[in-house]
Design a binder for these strands. Structure first.
Lengths: 146, 146
DNA sequence: ATTTAGTATACCTTTTTAGTACACTATTAT
DNA sequence: ATAATAGTGTACTAAAAAGGTATACTAAAT
């Protein structure tokens, strides 16, 4: 499960908005995060529909944080863009599983992937946006928690 | 870092050969693992060049295990096919890092990805082929170790 | 009513993934 | 020797995913 560039951009947009008061227009967000302008709009739309952001049209409008940064996690943002965290097809709900012998959802590799996938998912779910941008923790402290 | 279908096939080939004595021809390996025949050859070649397998030409030839299943890990096989385990571009050696502010290899997301990536890598490296096919451990016991 | 700024849909280009084709070489059995 | 088996090497291709654009429109503030 390579986190896509799009999800990476989304994370940094959320980060930026969580650290900023009031509405910020898409152009500024694009500049701050290094995202192409059109692509920014597309990603912001997804974050908006998911309820993570709110938007305001017209002069002085833009986007601002809607979700609580304390409960919004890295996992939430990544899964919104990339879909469920999954290191292997074999760990997806309906197991498309190329395996030796029978696999009734129970081949060993399938189980191992599922376990590791769960760990990965939990780790990403354990880091809230507030932790990263609150200034409450240093990077070292965050890393210790993971 | 979605483990590719090719790496998945490779794992199952190694699994199959580690559970089988003597040389097995590519066609049989293809059948046993559910891999397209031509694709099987391609993957077997990579495993051979890496020293994980040995091969024998001619009648009665085929492939057999060359590496020690006790030291060969899932990570070894996966990285041979897919390259270094990496959940984010940001966790690759030279950080192609789209981030807010400066990132001298030290942006918070970068560090978090790197940490989680290390964990993922360690987990995959902790499962040897022998553990999976030796019959020494049940699937449950393997999962406990991860 | 004009400007700013978000909305909606569709399209396009590049890279990666997954797989094939073909011509060749080496080994073994007869 | 020679036929049959089986691996080697290189190049190509189709489909999907990733990453990004274009166009036309709607809403709000001044």
């Amino acid at each position: 499960m390579r986190i896509t560039q799009e999800a990476d951009y989304a994370l940094r947009m959320v980060y930026y908005l969580a650290s900023t008061k009031g509405f910020v227009d898409a152009k500024s967000i694009a500049e701050a995060t290094g995202t192409p302008e059109r692509f920014t709009l597309k990603i912001l739309r997804k974050l908006l529909v998911a309820g993570f952001l709110s938007s305001q049209k017209g002069v002085g409008g833009g986007y601002s944080m809607a979700a609580d940064p304390n409960t919004l996690t890295m996992k939430d943002v990544i899964e919104l863009i990339d879909g469920p965290v999954s290191i292997s097809r074999c760990s997806e709900s309906e197991h498309i599983c190329s395996r030796v012998g029978e696999c009734k959802g129970e081949c060993t590799f399938h189980c191992i992937f599922e376990k590791i996938n769960g760990l990965l998912s939990d780790k990403l779910g354990s880091v809230s946006i507030a932790m990263v941008c609150g200034g409450e923790y240093t990077t070292e402290e965050i890393l210790e928690k993971i």
